[in-house]
Design a protein around this nucleic acid. Structure first.
Length: 564
RNA sequence: UGCCCGAUGGUGUAAUGGCAGCACGACUGACUCUGACUCAGUCUGUCUAGGUUCGAAUCCUAGUCGGGCAACCA
């Protein structure tokens, strides 16, 4: 597991850091304890990564600790499969919760005892209103609610009824436990919220031990208090829940009084982030699974070849605020390129091959040339690449009638074959349809290795593979999943699925230099002049890698050409 | 119609009463054995109107715009 870089001292003092600084300075807390509390009902995505980096990052930064806690209070929606994937993803991101592997369900006993205490305090009651009746009693945004007819029943009766609920003697939906607060509160969440409901369902951890399950609003503050969380960081939509959070801790007078702090969730261009939509993509088979390389899930990003360090860096870059924003996915891509440029070994692969014949190179001969593995990292060393008379180059690296400033192969022009020789184009061979089937050239033996002893320069360098030595591999040209920038900005009735990019996955064959065949599954590589790729961790087999494109290289020529 | 929260270049953010800064992006150009990287330069911003102050992105008031809130979900 990689160790996350400690945050630079000049890191922006975002508002949460400022709150913590103040709390530490005032002595309110001796240390920082945060938590990451996912509900195990789906896979983690890049938005969760923001929260993970924030919570675990803060703990690291302040030498406190961060707990991992499964918020498993709803037996109907949660599964073990998700628990495992969540742990794997957090670990992969580089974080460690140590011994603090918790579950909301660990506290069902304590929460229940606290509910009994609430009843004894006269602050909770059993209510039999149906869903519809309760909605009607709640009032609305502008009109106060009406009290439930059971609001003032005696403590003893509440105790007895809650015990019956707990023993499973009451039917689902026939009763709930409600906090008794204020039916006229302008905050609807304070109008006697439900805190326990009957669910005769089997829970993935507690089995059939319980017939009543706590609601999130009741459970979460208690979980935080039990664990001694100091700063309970969540997303903006929970802001309105904070008064109840504080009310509960105050009413129960818990020894610990964690503080809930809200920040804006991550939105990314060309990306859907809601669990519901991601689930639908999987269920409707619009992607191959949760870990499809096009998915913004942690497992998808991992399979796509995006390094954990790039995700961490990205999360630090985007900052933490209280206002909604839409982050350009280019920021993520930049973090990925930046990391991979430093670390990924280079190799040559031709995605759209056309044959290049060197007329003056001996037939049947071959040799090995030295190629640098990573110009950005001398320690990466070099490798041998086979060379012969017949090579394969990218089709787009030859043009019969080239525009000015086209530095690649065109009749009469000299270019460098990367790490090999200078070659001068002599022409091409076409088939009956006029399609180029072969490019011809001559080479200068004196330029072996790629430099001319006479000091002459070429403007262009192109990549190549030796046809007789080339490996043939599958490459998956992964592109953005959606064509629309802001998937949250949809017209009434507009289906987000209509913006799916039909070209988000193009499967192709590529010709590659032999060294690439030995690449370990999960290893990143740069195909020179093309992009960063990763040997797919799932579908690669020994000697037979399958490559996923992580991100393309920037291509200012393509941009210029498109403009012309 | 109520309550809560927010607003800084195209995008993400910093500045917490004292020179509006950084990163991404776009556009030039230099360099280059990757038209990559790197480097240099250019571009573009404090929602509006009042007020407080020597001085306001920052404090106050009003407005505008955006987001959230009426699951026995989290």
């Amino acid at each position: 597991m990689s160790t996350p870089e400690t945050t630079a001292p000049e890191a922006p003092r975002h508002f949460i850091r400022q709150i913590i600084d103040a709390d530490l300075a005032s002595g309110k807390h001796p240390t920082v304890v945060t938590r990451f509390p996912p509900e195990p009902n789906g896979y983690l995505h890049i938005g969760h990564a923001k929260s993970i980096c924030l919570n675990f990052g803060l703990a690291l930064e302040y030498k406190g600790r961060c707990h991992l806690r499964m918020d498993d209070t709803n037996p109907a929606k949660e599964e073990v499969e998700y628990v495992e994937s969540i742990k794997e993803d957090v670990r992969w991101l580089g974080f460690d919760w140590g011994a603090h592997d918790h579950n909301a369900s660990d506290y069902f006993g304590r929460m229940h005892a606290d509910a009994v205490r609430l009843i004894e305090l006269g602050k909770a009651y059993v209510c039999h209103l149906s869903l519809e009746e309760m909605r009607a009693h709640r009032g609305d945004l502008v009109t106060p609610g009406k009290p439930s007819p059971w609001r003032d029943r005696p403590v003893a009766e509440n105790l007895d009824l809650f015990a019956k609920m707990t023993r499973g003697e009451l039917d689902e939906g026939s009763a709930v436990l409600r906090a008794k607060i204020d039916m006229a509160s302008p905050n609807l969440l304070m109008r006697d919220p439900v805190i326990y409901r009957i669910r005769k369902a089997s829970h993935h951890r507690t089995g059939d031990a319980w017939c009543v399950y706590p609601m999130y609003d009741y459970a979460h503050p208690l979980e935080d208090a039990y664990e001694g969380i100091t700063h309970s960081i969540c997303t903006l939509e929970f802001e309105i829940h904070r008064p109840f959070y504080d009310w509960l801790l105050r009413t129960l007078d818990t020894p610990a009084k964690p503080q809930q702090i809200e920040f804006a969730r991550l939105n990314l261009t060309y990306t859907v982030m809601s669990k519901r939509r991601l689930l639908e993509l999987v269920q409707e088979r619009r992607v191959a699974g949760w870990d499809d390389p096009r998915m913004p899930t942690i497992s998808g990003l991992r399979r796509r070849g995006i390094p954990a360090s790039a995700i961490r860096r990205f999360c630090e870059t985007i900052g933490v605020t209280k206002h909604n924003s839409l982050t350009d996915v280019a920021l993520l891509e930049h973090a990925v390129r930046d990391e991979l440029n430093r670390t990924a070994p280079r190799a040559m692969a031709v995605l759209d091959p056309v044959r290049l014949v060197i007329e003056n190179y001996p037939e049947g001969a071959s040799e090995e040339l030295e190629a640098v593995n990573n110009p950005e990292d001398p320690a990466a060393g070099s490798r041998k690449v086979p060379f012969s008379r017949t090579l394969l180059i990218e089709r787009e690296d030859f043009m019969e009638d080239a525009p000015r400033k086209y530095f690649r192969l065109t009749p009469g022009q000299e270019v460098r074959l990367r790490w090999a020789y200078f070659v001068r184009c002599t022409g091409c061979v076409k088939d009956a349809d006029g399609k180029v089937v072969e490019v011809r050239c001559t080479y200068d033996p004196a330029t072996r290795g790629g430099d001319a002893p006479d000091g002459r320069k070429v403007k262009g360098t192109i990549h190549w593979v030796s046809e007789p030595h080339a490996g043939d591999v599958e490459v998956r040209l992964v592109d953005r999943l959606f064509l629309k920038e802001d998937l949250n900005d949809l017209a009434e009735g507009e289906d987000w699925r209509a913006h799916l990019n039909p070209g988000s996955l193009r499967v192709a064959r590529a010709k590659v230099e032999p060294s690439l065949l030995a690449l370990a599954p999960g290893a990143a590589v740069q195909f020179e002049r093309v992009g960063y790729f990763v040997a797919d961790a799932k579908d690669s087999s020994p000697g037979k890698p399958v490559f996923n494109r992580t991100v393309t290289l920037k291509d200012s020529w393509a941009k210029a050409a498109a403009k012309a």
